[in-house]
């Protein structure tokens, strides 16, 4: 009788291991997000735990409490770094004071005799460049997406889509290089701006990196509008442009909104393009033809030269944390909109 051995459920070791291993590996993505949170914030933390430069030990204490044993090593390393500086002696190193007032000031002079860590010009810089980029990229990308999915003849579509994929594949350093060498000169010749490298040049260059993102997601959103909807409109005698403008586009709005949000996120976090094309002067102005220094470019330019563990280093990590939180929030909101659109799609609404 074979039936009795149905009961002897075998313990499949390899099956069990495979499943656990796969789940554990999948968990890694989640763990990395947590680790990014922890390790980027942790290097920014000393700013908040010490308002006086002399109380570095206090900051160390704080860390020990928060992170347990592994922080002990970190602490000793911090001490070692301080020790080394003291021994070096020859250069009088001034520990910066990163009080809230200093952080909220309008001067970013991290390596002067009295370091100033005012984040405002950097934040304004990032916002300014991102705004220029998205104002240029979003209309172009959304219109092009509308064109591809509603009006374009098949032949044009077959050129347009690969062209955008090519643009998406441009390394940002290549766009930065193009902006630095060609675009900057072109813009200066055209408008006679005082500075070759400025917020406008950076924004234009950045829009090249933002266009593919907005285009892809907007196109996706437009293509996801149920055919029944557009067909209903056409059957009522509406022309294809009326359908596109008054039916398709409104129906795709949440997806397009998400596309713009993700575009802003990309613009805000992009480093190489702005590092190479904006002139990197931390000016607190709202003039688009002034040079500008963004948050990401500041990290990119200065991190390689700071002393590990000092205030400047911590402030750069603080800027990174702000970037992370900002893009994280944008992504979460965008995802909410995309999901809602998908849900509606599945409900057939």
């Amino acid at each position: 009788m074979r039936s009795s051995d149905l009961y002897t459920r075998k313990f499949h070791v390899s099956e069990f291991l495979a499943e656990k291993l796969i789940a554990a590996t999948a968990f890694l993505s989640f763990a990395v997000i947590i680790l990014i949170f922890v390790f980027v914030f942790r290097e920014a933390l000393p700013i908040f735990s010490s308002s006086e430069p002399a109380t570095h030990d206090e900051a160390v204490q704080e860390e020990v409490e928060t992170y347990g044993e592994e922080a002990l090593g970190e602490a000793s390393q911090l001490r070692a770094a301080e020790e080394k500086e003291r021994r070096a002696g020859s250069i009088e190193h001034v520990e910066g004071n990163a009080s809230l007032r200093n952080l909220l000031s309008t001067d970013w002079q991290p390596v002067s005799g009295e370091p100033k860590f005012g984040l405002l010009p950097l934040i304004v810089g990032s916002l300014k460049v991102s705004l220029i980029a998205i104002l240029l990229a979003a209309p172009l990308a959304i219109l092009a997406a509308l064109y591809t999915s509603t009006f374009a003849p098949k032949r044009v579509k077959e050129i347009l889509k690969p062209a955008i994929e090519i643009l998406a594949g441009f390394p940002s350093v290549v766009i930065g290089f193009f902006a630095l060498i060609v675009l900057a000169t072109f813009v200066q010749d055209l408008f006679g701006t005082m500075y070759r490298l400025n917020a406008f040049v950076g924004g234009v260059a950045l829009s090249l990196a933002v266009i593919p993102i907005v285009y892809t997601i907007a196109e996706d959103a437009i293509a996801a509008v149920p055919k029944s909807m557009t067909e209903a409109s056409l059957a009522l005698g509406a022309t294809s442009w009326q359908t596109a403008l008054f039916v398709t586009l409104p129906a795709a709005t949440p997806g397009i909104f998400a596309a713009v949000l993700l575009g802003v996120g990309r613009a805000f976090g992009e480093t190489m393009i702005v590092l190479m094309a904006t002139g990197n002067a931390a000016l607190m102005t709202f003039n688009v033809t002034d040079p500008v220094r963004t948050m990401s470019a500041t990290i990119g330019a200065e991190m390689a030269e700071v002393v590990f563990g000092d205030t400047h280093y911590n402030v750069l990590f603080l800027i990174g944390s702000i970037l992370f939180i900002f893009t994280f929030t944008l992504n979460a909101v965008a995802e909410f909109y995309i999901r809602r659109r998908l849900l509606r799609k599945f409900r057939g609404g």
Binding site: I36, V40, R266, T271, F317, T327
Partner: peptide, 19 residues
């Protein structure tokens, strides 16, 4: 997490690598 990871700026990954 995967979606979030896709949106984290490259420079923040750099900071993470360092930290």
């Amino acid at each position: 997490a995967v979606n979030t990871l896709a949106g984290v700026p490259a420079i923040v990954f750099g900071l993470f690598g360092l930290g």
